[in-house]
Amino acid sequence: MLIIECPWCGKRDQTEFSCHGEAHIARPLNTEELSEEEWGDYVFFRKNPKGLHYERWVHAHGCRRWFNVARNTLSDHIHGSYKPGETPPTIDTQEVSQ
């Protein structure tokens, strides 16, 4: 069981949250100029790293706010959470690989 820190409500059980995949995917501004392949990349293709991953989570059973989480997909260790629009925290990759 993971304990996740909601930036507003504090530490809560994982089951109060739901994860919605990779964070920081910006919608292209020149959509009419995109090729089929580029548009497909934006809509469907996601990173699937073994290790550090920045993800979007929503506190579904709590304040219902969206935020970002830096999580290690290998160990499930959560390095921290931050509000939308904030700069992702710098994570020591040495620490991640351990």
Partner: peptide, 10 residues
């Protein structure tokens, strides 16, 4: 007070 869940219900 706190918003949370009970079973499957918010």
């Amino acid at each position: 007070c706190s918003q949370t869940r009970f079973g499957h219900a918010s």
